[in-house]
């Protein structure tokens, strides 16, 4: 328990440090977002110079305040759950933008990451179990090939051939835009159909990593004496494979899995850009282009919190999975 509290403190510290960097970094970059907004509003013809200062204050970009005061105000806003107003999506608040788009990212990425991890790990187990066979050798080489493919290339190839040329899958947006979003069967089917291609490319590009990690880790545990002993005990192959070899080999993969889950929340910039997917990653891309500090800050904050949170989960998971990291456990006499 004390260990947990110490850990929590450490994670809070990490979040604070990240927020601080997050705040200062864009403000040290050149460019004035309000000027950019001013331009945009002028184009719409609804610009009133008197409201500029009000806008600055609203966006937390009141450059009349010294930076440290801006920082404190920013922290204060954060604590109250106020992430500010988006510049590019004005007048929507950052919280609303994120709340609306995160669903897309969460569903697409969590399904892909889960599928990729579980499938890759399972196949990796069988590869290690049958190491040296034609199955293992062929799949290992194939996976090395997949592993070295650059994701944007794969995604563009998929969009071009499967989407554009063959027309099997839609290759842009999260759903058929002629439908109204809602819980109708038609809409859900459309959303699922649109998700196939991005999910597929994601799985193909990440599954090799899971497979090879698990395979290599398990090849190591397979040569351990406890696996030999399990075999000598006359246990079924399935039990030796899973309860003894794989159970010990999966520990390194769990860390990687948590990191992957952490990125789920932040979205995959490249996926969402290539597929024009209405998720958080696409928002971040637009926010950076439009110098939308508030939105970029909000999304990065979300990524940080998610990553830290996933790390915490892994910490807890590890204490369940690996009794050796449990502390202060004593046998009751």
């Amino acid at each position: 328990m004390r260990r947990l509290i110490r850990r929590l403190g450490l994670y809070l510290l990490a979040v604070w440090a990240a927020i601080t960097v997050n705040f200062f970094l864009p403000r040290l970059a050149p460019g004035d977002p309000v000027a950019a907004l001013q331009q945009r509003l002028q184009q719409r013809g609804s610009f009133n110079p008197a409201s500029l200062d009000a806008l600055r204050a609203e966006f937390g970009l009141n450059t009349n305040d010294p930076l440290w005061l801006q920082y404190l105000k920013y922290l204060n806003n954060l604590i109250h759950g106020n992430l500010g107003v988006s510049i590019t999506r004005f007048p929507a608040s950052v919280g609303d933008v994120i709340g609306q788009d995160i669903k897309w990212t969460l569903v697409l990425l969590s399904v892909s990451v889960l599928l990729s991890f579980s499938l890759g790990t399972l196949v990796g187990i069988f590869m290690a179990w049958n190491r040296g066979t034609a199955f293992d050798t062929a799949l290992s080489s194939l996976m090395m090939f997949f592993y070295s493919i650059l994701y944007p290339w794969l995604a563009i190839v998929a969009v071009y051939f499967l989407g554009f040329n063959l027309g099997w899958f839609p290759f842009a947006f999260g759903y058929d835009t002629s439908l109204t979003p809602g819980w109708s069967a038609e809409f859900i089917a459309s959303a699922a159909y649109h998700a196939i291609l991005p999910a597929l490319t994601l799985i193909v590009s990440t599954i090799a990593g899971w497979m090879l990690t698990m395979r290599n880790s398990m090849v190591t545990t397979l040569s351990e004496d406890y696996v030999l002993l399990a075999r000598a005990k006359g246990l079924s192959s399935r039990r030796v494979m899973f309860a003894y070899a794989a159970r010990n080999a999966i520990l390194p993969s769990v860390t990687g899995f948590a990191i992957a889950l952490g990125t789920v929340v932040g979205g995959q910039l490249l996926v969402e850009i290539v597929f024009s997917y209405p998720g958080i990653g696409f928002d971040l891309f637009q926010a950076i282009q439009g110098q939308d500090y508030a939105l970029a800050d909000g999304i990065l904050l979300l990524v940080i919190v998610a990553t830290v949170f996933m790390n915490l989960i892994v910490d807890l998971l590890y204490t369940i999975l690996d009794p050796r990291v449990r502390e202060g456990r004593s046998v009751s006499a």
Binding site: D225, Y226, L229, D322
Partner: peptide, 9 residues
């Protein structure tokens, strides 16, 4: 080696 002969988990 009894350490390695027993499944650590």
């Amino acid at each position: 080696s009894a350490m390695n002969a027993l499944n650590p988990v």
